[in-house]
Design a protein around this nucleic acid. Structure first.
Lengths: 172, 172
DNA sequence: CAATACATGAGAATGGATTTCATTTTCAAT
DNA sequence: ATTGAAAATGAAATCCATTCTCATGTATTG
């Protein structure tokens, strides 16, 4: 593997004597707490996952990391994402036939509202729905452990576009 | 293809002069209304899909049909299931990395409560949750077209089992 | 019955995810 | 710092559900 890269990731401590910039929880700690060995690959992945956009695929992570550390492999990304998912650091959402989407789970719980036309994703949370879900589970004697609520529709912008299209067709 | 099978499926009309047993909507009509040619494969698939268990995979359908008409292919099952899904006769649910589950959609809308341990699926419907979903979509200006709500938990039986296990371990 | 547009089956291809395995790296004990 | 055992890695092979391809077969129209 190419170890020559002088790059040092922002939130990964280079020495053991901490005191870098704030850095919430250092990646090293997270990895150690999982009982795993600290490797540059895992630090890289963590860095990307925590600082990147809200939703990403394994491919996204791979492509971002590979720019810095060209010798990382798919397998490592998938493996570690899986580990993070199992440990609930990351939420994995697999819908449709498309690649799994992940997100760093430290933020508040939320569900998704996705636009069928443009793919835009809006996050929302609704206490009342959550409560009702609990209620439903309880009614059947289930202990609720998780849920997936994904709403699909057409966003305001795309609705507008569709109206314009229809107008155009009518005046043809 | 082997056309020698004397088997005639229960709900598929052999002649054009109807009057078989009740048979809600004849399969032929459904297929014709879709603008497709009526083939024995499609009739077979429809028959299985409509008379079988609530939830099934493409594989399930294939395996059931293949017993009667050994020369059917995967492709045909997948193709027709896709068609039925597009036409909203069938609902396709793809969760996790597992094969897609399908169900005949003519029944009332419902969501699912799945047991993590034994895989049991309970169907439920909750008007209030549906209403709230609409409300959420509206708040963001979306026109809601569909949703996926899947609850996961541990069913009563499996909860019981887990308690027993824990007891056993404690007394070791 | 012929013409033809559509449907089918077999197998190849796809694509995301996982596994395998030889090699490399981490890290605790020197 | 050195070392050795266990763990982690990358590359490639593999898996598996699903889709595609295409030569052949079949339903439907007239």
């Amino acid at each position: 593997m190419d170890k020559s890269s002088p790059l040092q990731l922002p939130t990964s401590n280079s020495g053991t004597t901490g005191r870098t910039r704030k850095a919430s929880v250092p990646g090293k700690k997270i990895i150690r707490d999982l009982g795993l060995k600290v490797t540059t690959q895992r630090l890289d992945i963590l860095e990307v996952v925590r600082s990147g956009p809200n939703h990403f695929t394994a491919q996204d992570v791979f492509e971002t990391v590979v720019k810095r550390s060209p010798d990382i492999g798919f397998a490592t990304v998938y493996r570690f994402l899986r580990t993070l998912t199992d440990a609930s650091f990351v939420t994995e959402i697999r819908m449709g036939g498309m690649p799994a989407r992940y997100e760093w789970a430290a933020k508040d719980h939320h569900d998704h509202l996705t636009c069928n036309s443009c793919g835009k994703i809006v996050e929302f949370e609704n206490e009342e729905i959550e409560r009702l879900q609990e209620k439903v589970a309880l009614r059947f004697g289930f202990l609720l452990t998780s849920h997936v609520l994904e709403l699909y529709g057409v966003c305001p912008e795309c609705r507008q576009k569709k109206v314009s299209q229809a107008d155009a067709e009518n005046s043809r």
